[in-house]
Nucleic acid binder design. Structure first.
Lengths: 229, 229
DNA sequence: TTATTGTTTATTGTATACAATTTTTAACGG
DNA sequence: CCGTTAAAAATTGTATACAATAAACAATAA
């Protein structure tokens, strides 16, 4: 998304507010509020919301307004199933053009992740930084822009929900192990395994999510965020 | 896309005009023109175009207007690569929940396709009808709405270009053969083969497209539609 | 004759204003 | 005291109006 026009900037701001939780799932996003915050008029806000509506990051109830979606279990399943298939494709495409230098570059990222995780208190922000870099780099190598855009969309749709539950130590340990196994598979030329591991890595997040529903659910954290399908 | 508001109807109309070639690749879509044709004012047209922009069906040049994209070879590759992976996923998901009744239902569609193709002059519209029904039914069975929406997007993006080239007899013959092989693989429980065939079926369209570039290109039909990457 | 610059025109980008609908609240009746 | 209805407030949906920018064309000078 370009950063040029007022509409595009509004888009980015709203998107950030949703992903970071300033607008919470289920909450209404009133045009007036946004236009006041951004000190612009309503039309560009409307257009920005229309774009986000088209990508699925917000939903519109006719004559009611736009809302941050309340994802059902089925929604979460849809998102992660799709994301897994997409990331598998990224791996597949990347493997066809990857150079040894790029493989080494990515292993370095994995090593950074590993170093962070063995410490007592994991710096989640740093971990996330390297983790993101790993997948972004792979996307770049795969070289399919539409794939990249759509995967980012899906990621944003799920983020307000996975934000907390995905950053617990045991999940981080499994995450880093997946990336180690993936890079080993890549190095040994086992493409099929690498793709399969990548798919599992994404689906792992879904499992964590579903496992934690029972616990987090009752704590009232996600109870207002995820509804029964 | 719902058919409720003026914006949604504008969206559908513009989309149809692009897919059917009333707005040709490279052509500018002027807000004034659309609003006149639809007898509505400009704002809803703008919002509709913003939605189509978000889905990638039109591109916006800042301060210039919106245009039907001129796809490069790389664009076409991106679209079909993604579409193939998505359709493979559809097959995979559908196979997990498909009933014998549904399998029979789909084989009936394939038989209808077969009957049409053996005739001298193929009724392309009828063929397309059954072909669409086949894939739409599979999508329904797979049960992933986001997957469905996105696949439809990709289909629309490529349609203005594949419209002509994909409806030649030899391609139709290969198409119907693919569907026969797919349904046979499904019936025999060979899931992996079914998925693989589905993927190949989609990529086949890309091959046809690339093959025909040389020919159709010089006829000036697509010369203004597809640019060098 | 051609290139460059200035003016005009067309189109998008933004803001303001109004209409329609829905929700909420208050009042009235049971 | 609760339910129902009506009126008011708030919010979205649509239209009109104006500003800014870029493209096209014409005019002038080299």
């Amino acid at each position: 998304m370009k950063v040029d026009s007022i509409v595009d900037r509004a888009c980015q701001h709203i998107q950030e507010w949703i992903v970071t939780g300033r607008f919470k799932p289920g909450e209404q996003i009133k045009e007036e509020i946004v236009s006041q915050r951004l000190e612009i008029s309503r039309p560009p806000v409307r257009e920005a919301l229309k774009m986000l509506e088209a990508t699925g990051l917000v939903v519109r109830k006719p004559r009611r307004g736009v809302f941050v979606p309340l994802l059902t279990k089925k929604d979460v399943w849809e998102i992660y199933t799709l994301k897994a298939a997409l990331y598998e494709l990224v791996m597949e495409l990347a493997l066809e053009v990857m150079t040894d230098g790029q493989i080494h570059e990515m292993e370095t990222l994995v090593e950074k992740m590993e170093k962070l995780v063995i410490e007592d208190t994991v710096d989640i922000l740093k971990y996330q930084k390297h983790h993101k870099a790993f997948h972004r780099r792979l996307m770049e190598i795969a070289g399919n822009n539409r794939l990249n855009t759509f995967a980012a969309n899906l990621h944003n749709q799920a983020t307000p929900f996975s934000y907390k539950s995905l950053h617990q130590k045991d999940h981080l340990l499994r995450s880093v192990q997946y990336h180690r196994e993936i890079i080993e598979a890549v190095k040994s030329g086992n493409r099929h395994l690498a793709c399969s591991l990548m798919k599992q890595h994404v689906m792992d997040a879904l499992l964590v999510f579903q496992d934690e529903q029972g616990a987090v659910w009752d704590e009232g954290l996600l109870s207002s965020m995820v509804m029964e399908g």
